[in-house]
């Protein structure tokens, strides 16, 4: 070889450039995961508050009105945040290389389920205009119907500020979620369940949902 040193130096430069690139990507990835974690923490406050409120009610016999007003205020904020975090997590599904994303997603699904259950309890015991929808999508394979449903749900949320959507993959490995899936007999997706346990027939039927419901 005429220029052996050139080959060696080129190798060293390549190594540096490559390592620098990897570190850069790692930094961005970590930064994104940190932001997701911070968002998840904020969502978790809602479910923690709800839990504490239950305990407080048991200990100090809180009045129904006080309970509902506190519940509504705290839960609403968390549910809105939860919906935002759900779409953010979906967006980032294809952009994550590390396993940390899966941990965040797992924690989020549990928190979201907890919020859903509290929302059911809130609806049952308090006067509210809130409509909570359960939305099941495919968490493993590409589902064009789910993309359409998400578009329609997004417009519904814009049209009706009191609608809360709780999105869950119907084929998740999380055993608690499978309870919900089997309760509503979800076999195909997209599937949308209203708070009164009524199944929304087709995605187009979402347009017929009234903003004020009981």
């Amino acid at each position: 070889m005429v220029e052996l040193d050139v080959y060696v130096k080129a190798g060293i430069i390549t190594l540096f450039v490559f390592l620098f690139g990897l570190m850069f990507v790692k930094y961005i990835d970590q930064d994104r995961l940190d932001r997701l974690n911070a968002e998840l923490d904020k969502v978790s406050y809602g479910s923690e508050s709800a839990r504490l409120l239950q305990l407080y009610t048991l200990v100090f016999n809180l009045s129904q009105n006080e309970r509902c007003s506190y519940f509504g205020r705290e839960m609403n904020q968390s549910m809105v945040r939860s919906m935002e975090l759900a779409s953010l997590l979906e967006k980032e599904k294809d952009n994550s290389l590390s396993g940390s994303y899966l941990n965040i997603k797992h924690k989020f699904l549990l928190t979201n389920m907890e919020l859903y259950l509290y929302s059911r309890q809130y609806r049952a015991s308090c006067e509210t205009r809130m409509e909570s929808l359960l939305y099941f999508y495919d968490g493993k394979a590409f589902c064009p119907g789910c993309l359409v449903a998400e578009g329609r749900l997004e417009s519904l949320k814009q049209r009706c500020p009191d609608v809360r959507v709780f999105a869950f993959p119907y084929n998740s490995d999380e055993s608690l979620l499978s309870l919900l899936v089997s309760k509503y007999g979800v076999a195909t997706v997209p599937a949308i369940i209203r708070a009164n346990d009524e199944k929304v027939g087709t995605v187009s039927d979402l347009g017929a949902i009234s903003c004020v419901s009981r």
């Binding site: 620098f20 690139g21 961005i28 990835d29 967006k91 998400e150 578009g151």
Partner: peptide, 26 residues
């Protein structure tokens, strides 16, 4: 006809797309 999904996927900001970020530096 999945305009929403399409817009959603192309509107991902640079800092959240690893696939874009990875070669961006290069």
């Amino acid at each position: 006809g999945l305009g929403y999904a399409w817009l959603n996927s192309v509107a991902i900001p640079l800092d959240v797309s690893l696939v874009i970020n990875a070669p961006l530096i290069f």
